[in-house]
Write a protein that binds this DNA or RNA. Structure first.
Lengths: 204, 204, 204, 204
DNA sequence: AATGAATGAGGTTTCATTCAT
DNA sequence: AATGAATGAAACCTCATTCAT
């Protein structure tokens, strides 16, 4: 049975760090608690990461990087845009609102001012990719005559808004008593509403 | 000229606290910085508030309470629902994304886990009010035969999603280099898209 | 009875710091011990000094600055150079080898590598002043026909050597069992030997 | 080709330890840096030495022991005392101020309080030997009618003072910008001055 | 009412040292 | 013999909070 490799250890630490940071935010998370969760000493954390900040950065980067490929459909060759958009919304909302991902927007939003480069990384690596993909998808639909939309970029923001809403609702408000959100159902409705709007053209 | 009343002092402190908490979040904000901003000593803060937490709670409550009345139209008697909804979206997005309000969602999202009762208060006092108002507005539109919508509650969430998106974009991502968001324009488009989706004849 | 002024506090801290740093060197001295010696809490030290390093620097600078004026004779107008030199050697050796000063060369020597700017400060503020004064004194004697000396700068170093020897002996070696040094007597002899050499000319 | 013996390894470690301790002093030297310099793991250091302290002790003892035989002239049968003394001063100053020796006085002075037995060892093994040898040499000169000196022991201290001065100057102050010391020239002058002072006819 | 001074609790980080492999 | 991994014991430093004046 091989010994734990260094990267194994990093992974195990990041798993625990994720829980602590997700639970308490950067400042309130304690290295001791992370270490205890991993089952190692505080000092051992510093074998894998230079500092609490470095660990936090690594965690956020990793989660963002992990998450991205699962969000965007790999190719949408000749499929009709409405089906593609509906599929994207359902998939993305389910992914982002899932318990092991939803902490990310919360962390980014909460710590963005103290870790600007993480906010920037999230913005560049996740947000604009997603927004760009949605925008292209809408343009794809316009090209195919399926959508009418004056400003696809703005429409993409409306799409993203619903997804973020779901993530925050589940992660921020449900724990304090908010009525549980049926993510599938909301995805269905959000996609439906947006699609109806796009089919018809988003002008009053 | 009357002497400063105790509540004057509380207000002046809360104004400074708002800036510090908005800039750094709860944990990283320092009482010393707040005091310096007010121009008083650290100890004097404790004459007005029992603790940092109490100050934070008071601030958040106050801001929520202040914000609410400005969000909802007082009455929308016989006006057509589309115009009302459009007006609401434009007003709410402009208000919530304005520099002196946008920090609130960020704080709620960031500190919600550490201050569950604030998240709860925000949820109960702000979120469900807004969502409820929007929902009723949509129902109002359905009643008038202007809207068609299978689940008004879900549609209200889509409406709110766009608003939250705008607030977070301005407050979290613009400071780290995101392309500036034209809130008016996004409000216009968001409302337009939603309205197009809600218009009778919805084909979701 | 007035309250302790901030600079009083700094002084009291520096007095204690002197003892701890003198006893253990920079690295091994503990802030807790310094605080206990002053009779205050560790945290209070940080009201007066930014860091352990800052405290150490302040201490060394202060001691150097305090020491200097006591070393050099204010003026040596028309007095014969031999008497002046003898007086200087006796005074300087007694001062530098005294218990409350002798720790300084030891700290400078011991920590000079880790605090180069302190070594530099000591060199510039103390060493070259003293060496320069002695050198000028010797030149003064040459001018008066009392001394013969090929290189007064080097002779000054021989003078200083004896003084440093006394300081280190008392501070480093006496505590570990070295035969106690009669500083007065050594000063007398050191001055006598040097003077005899200078009178005669330092060539073999 | 024989395998490296345990004492080979000790030597290689001590060579590296010398550099680190010389550069940073005992407390600030890190076992990791020493190990890296040797090219072995930190743990391997403990196969050769019980502890950091033990290593430091071994190093200092070794250097002292190595240095001593090179300092004193083995025998000075019928040579004239002045030449012997001059030779000793030049040799000793050159040796002690040389880059690979000069760190020793610095370490002894700097760490003497924390390692009293090393200071004691240095005192007993090096200092009093050297001082004794010089003293005997002076007495030898007195006996031969070449020197006149009331207290040879004190004169020996003056001799040693110049040597220590040179070592500290080179090792402590030159690295922080002091004017480079021409050790040969200082030795020449120091010996000359002392000899002039010691020559029969001393009029101290 | 107001504050300068003080502190206790707690956090991150470092490093000599140990030990299973 | 050798080491990568792990740790326990500090040490420095911060900051919300208190209190005498």
């Amino acid at each position: 049975m091989p010994r734990a490799t260094p990267s194994d250890r990093r992974e195990r630490i990041l798993d625990s760090a994720r829980e602590e940071f997700a639970e308490r935010g950067f400042a309130a998370a304690r290295m001791e608690d992370i270490a205890r969760r991993v089952g190692i000493s505080r000092a051992a954390l510093y074998l894998a990461f230079d500092s609490k900040e470095a660990m936090f950065r690594a965690l956020v980067s990793e989660v963002i990087t992990e998450m991205m490929p699962t969000l965007l459909p790999s190719d949408y060759g000749s499929l009709p845009a409405p089906a593609l958009l509906r599929a994207f919304v359902k998939n993305a909302m389910k992914r982002i609102a899932s318990p092991d991902m939803a902490f990310l927007p919360r962390l980014i939003v909460g710590e963005g001012r103290n870790f600007p480069e993480l906010a920037r990384f999230y913005h560049e690596t996740a947000l604009i990719c997603v927004l760009g993909a949605v925008e292209r998808l809408i343009i794809h639909g316009i090209d195919r005559g399926e959508f009418a939309c004056a400003d696809p970029k703005m429409a993409a923001r409306s799409v993203a808004g619903g997804i973020i809403f779901a993530a925050l609702w589940r992660n921020v408000f449900e724990p304090v008593g908010a009525e549980p959100l049926d993510v599938e159902w909301m995805a269905e409705n959000h996609a439906g509403l947006i699609l109806a709007g796009l089919r018809r053209g988003d002008v009053a």
